[in-house]
Design a protein around this nucleic acid. Sequence first.
DNA 1: CATGAATGAGGTTTCATTCAT
DNA 2: AATGAATGAAACCTCATTCAT
Lengths: 228, 228, 228, 228
Amino acid sequence: MPPRSTKQSVVEVDQSEPELDLGDSRPLRADAERNRRLIVEAAETVFAERGLMAGFDEVARAAGVGVGTVYRRFPQRDDLIDALFADRVQAMVALAESAAAIEEPWQALGWFLEQSVAEQAGDRGLAEVLGDGMRGSRRLAQARERMLPAVGDLLARARRAGVVRPDVEILDLAVIGSMLARLSTDADPELWRRYLPIALDGLRQRPDSAPLVGGAAREADLTQLARR
Amino acid sequence: MPPRSTKQSVVEVDQSEPELDLGDSRPLRADAERNRRLIVEAAETVFAERGLMAGFDEVARAAGVGVGTVYRRFPQRDDLIDALFADRVQAMVALAESAAAIEEPWQALGWFLEQSVAEQAGDRGLAEVLGDGMRGSRRLAQARERMLPAVGDLLARARRAGVVRPDVEILDLAVIGSMLARLSTDADPELWRRYLPIALDGLRQRPDSAPLVGGAAREADLTQLARR
Amino acid sequence: MPPRSTKQSVVEVDQSEPELDLGDSRPLRADAERNRRLIVEAAETVFAERGLMAGFDEVARAAGVGVGTVYRRFPQRDDLIDALFADRVQAMVALAESAAAIEEPWQALGWFLEQSVAEQAGDRGLAEVLGDGMRGSRRLAQARERMLPAVGDLLARARRAGVVRPDVEILDLAVIGSMLARLSTDADPELWRRYLPIALDGLRQRPDSAPLVGGAAREADLTQLARR
Amino acid sequence: MPPRSTKQSVVEVDQSEPELDLGDSRPLRADAERNRRLIVEAAETVFAERGLMAGFDEVARAAGVGVGTVYRRFPQRDDLIDALFADRVQAMVALAESAAAIEEPWQALGWFLEQSVAEQAGDRGLAEVLGDGMRGSRRLAQARERMLPAVGDLLARARRAGVVRPDVEILDLAVIGSMLARLSTDADPELWRRYLPIALDGLRQRPDSAPLVGGAAREADLTQLARR
DNA sequence: CATGAATGAGGTTTCATTCAT
DNA sequence: AATGAATGAAACCTCATTCAT
């Protein structure tokens, strides 16, 4: 939850699913639906731990169904990825939109970065999805694309306020967030929290800030980084 | 090369190999030596791209020799890792020692971080070796261990000078360097250069620096991160 | 079948499987069962010819299935060995127990030796299993261990009757049986039948029998001989 | 040495090399000759332990020369086998001829069997050579062939004296000797001595000896048995 | 519709023999 | 002539995906 600025009403965030479905047609049979849910739930855990390339075998085992069932329900890996992460990505967008409600621009940006890393750090799959625009299908991609303007707004605000390095771009934040999110280990799953303030201080505009060199990361870079 | 502080003579740094060899006995025959070099060169490329777990098959193919030849020369993967990286790690130590010659503590630290990331970036193998103390054999481990005091000195100096956040520890630098080193893509192999100043600014002591939370990374964390 | 001693009814021998199964749980699917049988049948031939270390690849080829299938069904070589030989070893025990029903002690021993060699001859795999107590898993080992008392009884009876050399021990019989079993060739698979009476005559107590020298073979000897 | 029968002069055994060499032409250079000897000596040990298929690599290592040297001197495995075993086989022939000097036919046969097994038991290579007529080249084969009449004489004499089962043939003795020779383990290298009297007693003609069934072993059988 | 069995390519490693040095 | 390096076929085993039941 965003730290509410005092006596300020927070913009209501629209959490409703934007109906991007393209004719999945009729509903599943009751048992099929149950299995579908079991699979999704299992995959959430498995993908969170092992990433998007985790074996369907493991998912099936965790769900208590046969592999075949997983493949029938999700013939392409991307189908499962979609089912798992469309909502999560939506939630990330919502997060950025929520952050817009924080009055202080720097706090807004910082809060968002923290939240978004917190989400990704505990979920390797989510981190890969956010980084790799090629993952999942149309629906997921669309959700993902909505992050850009939302984060762009946070960034623009901070830039206007002169609190962030002026040449930081949206994908720079994505890169930094994605690197921070990797800083999670068995021994210290929240290791990233130690480095977040360093990243934030580094992003902050200072009298002596040198201009950033080179161009910002591009989608293709992000994709490749996410696939590592 | 270190940026020389003005009008100051720089201490001569000893770059000579400290003779860690343990009885490799006599030199290889000419053809074997040639193949060895082919293999090492091929492995450099392959490991740089695919990491330490790249297939020996691929190395052999790239070197234009049979698999058996690779196994004859390097019966254990660690033998090949040693051959590839012992010098590189030595060079990293030398780098840290070179940096000691830079008068200005902050510059020394920054220069070292830059150099060390430059080495690791684009060489996934080296990055894995530096992160994962279990890789390679004794000789490599020894070389790697020498980094700690060398970097420790740089850090201590910066801390005494009050220019670095006082609670940053050596392994924090290793973590940050290792993350930066990952920021290298086909499209922009030097992407990391854009984020280095951000990291450095974030490491710098400021009047308003908040203390870092949690404990610094431990060896085990570093290892796990490197294996990702 | 044991040669019945005249006008004497023979004790009914219990040939039923003594239920050693440890929760194999539910039966295999029809196709899996079919493949399992194909594999076992193929392995019978292959192991009979090449011994227990025959390649899984060859078994798979002979069975007309992929290697993976063999590994799925029998992840450890010992699993396959068990499946192939547990019943065979059981049958050998039953053989010894059957022999107990033969009234004449010498005939009982001879009949058993003949039957047991007949089983082993031409089946290198079985011979190795019987000789090498380390092969196969628990279940097989247990079955194998039951041979000792059963054969011991036959031997004791013959000794009490004074028809066998008094210093022959159980493992001596195992050694002799195992050597005889090797006497099977493509040209004459039953070559051993020629040497069996020689061995038996040699085992028989005679007025002039010299005592045997040295100690009897030990398990370790038998194991090593079987591995040859 | 044969136990000399009293007051009987022993036939002088011709130990001289029968010059079967076919133009090996000129003598080796001094160093080559030295290496040849080193190799043969090493191979004696190695083949004795591991049999005729032992790796040339191992022989080379034991000899302290390169593998290439072994292959140069003995391009075919059979060449080395010849060099190693021609004399040994000669010696076996001599043994049989020596045995002829023993007056008592049964003792002669028994003594020969004991000696010949003793030779083979300690030398797996020799055992394989004696069994497998295809091993080695012409010269060795010729030496080997000379065993037949020599042993044949011992056997004929015993048969005439009525002390051996009348239907035992020469190759039966070879089979029995070869099986006995296998009864040698690390724990008890002379295990075969325990079973030799059993075999001998079994070969002995008794009032109640049943005729042997089937035909005697043929060369082909012996060969296959030796290759096991 | 659910199942989990089957597949087979791909990586690892060894070893008998050949051949460049 | 001696060397030991190089070879490559072959066995081992795994795993993502397809398909028969």
